[in-house]
């Protein structure tokens, strides 16, 4: 199982699409690691600089419909090679969400109000998140605050996270 904890990258915009996560011109890369320097490089957002803001982050907290657009699994891979294994949002595009779990990574959906509160309380601070998949609990911590938030994932998604993927599961079962 992958590690699901670390510093938070806040992306305060909805509908961040797969072209913004990893532009199409890098789809010719056959090695995942080649995508590392290009994560979110086309994301134009006030107060965000991909060159300085991604380094050292392990969790993304963002808004609605994250990962919309193309089916490219290069999007979760670009996150993965940067050490980001968790994305937390009010909603995800279907294919992106499935790709995350298929890669053994977490795409956690929380109520939009809960997400708004996380932005309001923690965005400014140097925030850490750790996710306990067994207890289904997210712990958020900054210098002066901490908070625990429960979440839900399906039994099947949990199995994918714990066994590390759909290929082995399917080959054994079908």
């Amino acid at each position: 199982m992958k590690e699901f904890k670390g510093k938070v990258l806040f992306l305060d915009r909805s509908d961040i699409n797969t072209d913004e996560i990893i532009p199409a011109k890098y789809l010719t890369e056959i090695e995942k690691i080649a995508m590392k320097p290009h994560l979110l490089e086309d994301l134009k957002m006030e107060g965000f600089d991909p060159i300085t803001d991604i380094d050292g982050k392990a969790v993304v907290v963002t808004r609605d419909n994250f990962g919309c657009g193309s089916s490219r699994e290069h999007a979760p891979w670009a996150l993965e090679v940067n050490g980001i294994h968790v994305v937390i949002a009010p909603s995800f595009a279907r294919i992106f969400r499935q790709n995350m779990y298929n890669c053994g990574m977490l795409a956690i959906e929380l109520d939009p109000d809960v997400i708004s509160n996380i932005f309001a309380e923690f965005k400014a601070a140097d925030t850490q998140i750790s996710v306990d998949v067994e207890a289904l609990e997210i712990s958020i911590q900054s210098a002066d605050k901490n908070k625990k938030i429960p979440f839900e994932i399906s039994g099947f998604d949990k199995e994918l996270i714990q066994t590390g993927g759909w290929v082995e599961y399917a080959d054994q079962n079908y």
Partner: peptide, 27 residues
């Protein structure tokens, strides 16, 4: 992602990522 096009024929057609594709090819 535009695999949904084939729904025009009354099919259930959906775009998937690489891992789903891999399993589709294999199984």
């Amino acid at each position: 992602s535009h695999t949904c096009t084939h729904g025009a024929f009354g099919a259930f057609a959906a775009g998937v990522g690489t891992t789903d594709l891999e399993v589709g090819i294999l199984k």
